[in-house]
Write a protein that binds this DNA or RNA. Sequence first.
DNA 1: GAGCGCTTATTGTGATCACAATTATTATGA
DNA 2: TCATAATAATTGTGATCACAATAAGCGCTC
Lengths: 235, 235
Amino acid sequence: MRDEGDEVRPEQTMQDRAYQTLRHALIVGKLPPGKGISLRAMAEDLDVGVMPMRAAIARLSAENALTVHDNRRVSIPEMTTDRFDQLMQARLLIEPTCAMRALGAIDEATLARIRAHDDEINRSYQIGDAELYMASNHAFHFEIYRAGRSEVLTHLLESVWMQFGPFMRTVYGAVGAVRLTDKHEMAIDAIERRDVTRLKLAIEADILDGMDLLGKSIFTQPAEMRSVSAASGQA
Amino acid sequence: MRDEGDEVRPEQTMQDRAYQTLRHALIVGKLPPGKGISLRAMAEDLDVGVMPMRAAIARLSAENALTVHDNRRVSIPEMTTDRFDQLMQARLLIEPTCAMRALGAIDEATLARIRAHDDEINRSYQIGDAELYMASNHAFHFEIYRAGRSEVLTHLLESVWMQFGPFMRTVYGAVGAVRLTDKHEMAIDAIERRDVTRLKLAIEADILDGMDLLGKSIFTQPAEMRSVSAASGQA
DNA sequence: GAGCGCTTATTGTGATCACAATTATTATGA
DNA sequence: TCATAATAATTGTGATCACAATAAGCGCTC
């Protein structure tokens, strides 16, 4: 049985709307690390009821994108060298695999969108728009990964990205202007040539570039615990 | 098990209790894939209010441990070859790394607990207790991983394990009795000798063994209807 | 006996209120 | 002036009710 108007199914609920809004804010780093997230206050800010906001916060907390303290209070996660280490390790492990799994499913239309995202990244550099960079960079990567329909793996990656979004945004001003050799174009080139090995290397290199840049700026923290290298072993 | 230590801080809330209960049921595979999870019905079963159960279900759903359909209805995830592929891929990527990160932090007391879990696994084989096997196997692995305090990575792994728990339990009857060369003892041996490479190999081999066993049972018919039977003959 | 329309039951979503605990603020003391 | 106690505001947790949408039963007709 079917309905003529298909607005029945994808009718977005309030909690979905609240979730998407907060999630996007995390990804582009609109909220600073350590900032407290209050139920009623945030509900007021996003102009949404308390119940949807409660569901949204619970969901983000379950995805490790928000930190819940012993007080049952919630806040934007603070970055530590150890957490940064694990997040980048997770990226290095999962993202190349995701990209390789997706390569065969990237058609011309998808590739066009990937290029468009990369153009947006370049534009963000020129105009110095940090949030645009964050959003476009996320879109670029997940346009690739999502093409492979690897729901399980991409879900893990979404969690990882939301966790370092706020921190990454705070250090954008210090390192964001610097641009190394573009690994994104290398990835696009690999996709065009259907070269899985090169695509894997491009993704790895892109992550390592980011690690190298962001890793340095972590030493501003009260760094009593600092493990030197970000990722130890590499397969 | 654990008793009340300092009840001031970690005073468990109702939603935590509901979450832990459901989570344990998923890990040991007490609930069959495809089974619908209703809010009020499950709240009645676990003898808990509707609000805590709603929070628990939302949390598990966010961790991909429960499937939420377009009807907004929730059920135990069904296994497919593609999902199984991704889950085992995630294990192979993350778990060896987690074990290596933890090795240096495994003291004698932790090692004793690891051995105890392995003994429980062996006991579960003898008495044919599937749920005991599932619980002990989970405890064995995460006793290792958690020693490294890699909260980010272990959180990802917990999500992965909950996703294949129900499916793994259904095929236990068919393949559970079989025991290959024990990779757990190999892992314990590697820990004793502080051999990171050997530990990594042991974990990898253990996962591959499980994949080999479980993977076969997936290659049955387009198995939408076969997900129920637990102890059926295997070709 | 199988398909169809109606009624009933159950579902998830959301709002609203109550409560205890914690935090912030103010008043009061030396 | 500064520490301290009392008060007020804000927090998360949980219960209860309302509502629309969907699923399940059930009687009916052909």
